Computed example of a mutant assay.
Amino acid sequence: MIEESNTYYFKQAGKVMDHYYANKGQLDALIGTRKYINDHFDKELNLDLLSDARFTSKFHLLRLFKKYYGQTPKQYIISKRIELAKEFLKNGKSITETCFEVGFDSPSSFSTLFKCRVGLTPTEFQKRATFTKFDKFSF
């Protein structure tokens, strides 16, 4: 009975892999693009650069990235930057320093995107993070 369920499971997994991940070359390019973003998200990145880095059409890259990761490369880059910015702000870095260190061009665009994604301005986030850090040590 166990062997039958394993066989059934592997057949179903194979169908899913064939259906969703049919083109290994595309998948490799996509994984490589995401790795490139993860390694360089603090630098200036755009669709042209990413498509050139993986030798693919920028429109094809955009479609595939959205299909497999559920967001565009630009959305993914912003998410990575915001997550790192949250860590920097929690650790007491200034907003301006954080802004440039994670790859944003200006503190105003950073603050706008941060508030849109997190629901708080960087200043509010930093105050709450500091308060929470010290609140843990209260008796």
Rank of each mutant, 00 (worst) to 15 (best):
I31H: 14
S5V: 03
Y76F: 07
D28C: 11
K66V: 01
H40K: 01
T123D: 07
T121Q: 05
Y20T: 07
C116S: 13
N23G: 11
I95A: 09
K24H: 01
S94R: 03
N6K: 11
D52W: 00
A53Q: 12
S57A: 05
F65R: 00
C116Y: 15
Q26A: 12
I2L: 08
L89N: 01
Q12K: 11
T130G: 02
E87F: 00
G32I: 02
E4A: 14
F59S: 13
D48N: 09
Y21R: 14
P73I: 07
H60R: 12
G70D: 03
K66C: 08
F114H: 03
A29S: 06
C99Q: 10
F65L: 05
S108R: 13
F131M: 01
R81G: 07
F104T: 13
D28Y: 12
T123F: 09
N38Q: 14
L89R: 05
L61T: 05
T56L: 00
R117D: 10
A13M: 05
A129R: 00
S79L: 00
D52N: 13
E83Y: 14
T132Q: 13
F104S: 06
K74Y: 05
L61R: 12
G70I: 04
Y8T: 07
Y68M: 03
I82M: 08
S5C: 07
K43G: 10
A53C: 01
G14R: 15
I37K: 13
Y69P: 01
R54V: 11
K136E: 07
K24C: 12
R128Y: 05
I37W: 01
D39C: 08
F114C: 02
I77R: 06
S79R: 14
I95L: 03
Y69A: 15
K11S: 10
K74I: 00
G14F: 03
S5A: 04
D52Q: 11
K93I: 04
Q71L: 02
D52L: 04
A22V: 05
K133Q: 09
K24Q: 13
E44Q: 12
L49E: 04
L61E: 13
R81N: 07
E124H: 06
Y9M: 14
F134V: 15
G14Y: 14
S94C: 08
V102W: 04
T56A: 00
A85Y: 11
G70Q: 09
L45M: 08
Q75S: 07
D18G: 11
G70P: 02
G119F: 09
C116W: 03
D42Q: 15
S57V: 05
K24F: 11
G103V: 12
V118C: 12
T7C: 00
E101F: 08
K93R: 14
G119S: 05
K127W: 12
G70W: 01
Q12Y: 15
L61M: 03
D105F: 15
S5H: 08
Y9V: 10
F139K: 00
D105R: 12
F134Y: 13
T98W: 14
K35Q: 07
T33S: 00
F125C: 06
M1F: 13
N23D: 15
S106N: 12
K86N: 11
R128S: 14
F41Q: 06
D52G: 02
K136C: 06
I2P: 02
T7Y: 14
K11E: 04
F134H: 04
